[in-house]
Amino acid sequence: MTWLDTAGDILASALEAMTPLLLAAAGGLFTELAGMLNIALEGLMLTGAFFGFAAAAASGSLILGVLAGALASSAVAWAYGSATLRLKANAFITGLAANIFAPSITAILSAVWFGTRSVVALDIPEPARPLQAFFGSTSILGRIFFSHHSLVYLSWVLAAGAALLSNRSILGTRIRATGARAEAVAAAGFKPDSYKLAAIILSGFFCGIAGASLSLPLGAYVPAMSSGRGWIALVAIYLGNRRPGRTALACFIFALAESFSNFAQGQFGIPSEFILAIPFAATLIALSLGTSAKRV
């Protein structure tokens, strides 16, 4: 195996690992643009992972699974958002509440529906690998770009859609305006809170799909499987300076660091803890370099 093959494998697995990050970051982007700190991404992802898997298991359809994940997560986001906005509660604490609530409710429902609070592994359809047949998976480029399952490509489409929605749509403009200057939006006769709520629901929608992109390809729901990705997505948004393109790039850097560290564990005699720290360290360095460059 040449180093080129290895690099190709790392890139390919980075693109796969990027999927949930990209989707969660796309969701978090809306709340960031609306001027809110949304730490509930984690809980929303978990909700999406569970309901997405449950629906796919019940219906046998991945599309329904993705949809159900998105809807369930949007519903939780709606509840969390309206509590935050209507009660004027602190978004950090309510976000924490959402993150505590998600694993609890999924476990309760998991016990009811599947008879276990632990791993649920059922036969659900495999996500297709739509481009593999056309472009082959033998060449390096084919493996890097065309070997992935459909959710990977869906995430690209959705991320582009999110960028378009935030920059070009009426709703996106309103959300950005709310974040930039809520009182101006109010003065123009709109309710800033309803745009904030819309942003939260959108973040739920995307995070739900992000969660489904964890559980559906795995064919299983594992408690706590979001595993800090919501936080990383939030970091990626900051790293990307709240711009869609740069945020996507940040997600990629993070995913690359992770898949490199997965590879590195087998290669170098470094304690695993240090290797596990690579993504965080890489982000920190990127953040330091990025902002200092911006400052000049």
């Binding site: 690992a17 964890l214 795995l218 594992v222 706590a224 997965n262």
Partner: peptide, 9 residues
């Protein structure tokens, strides 16, 4: 619990 990462590993 990070099954996705376990799969990558």
């Amino acid at each position: 619990y990070d099954a996705t990462k376990a799969s990558e590993l």
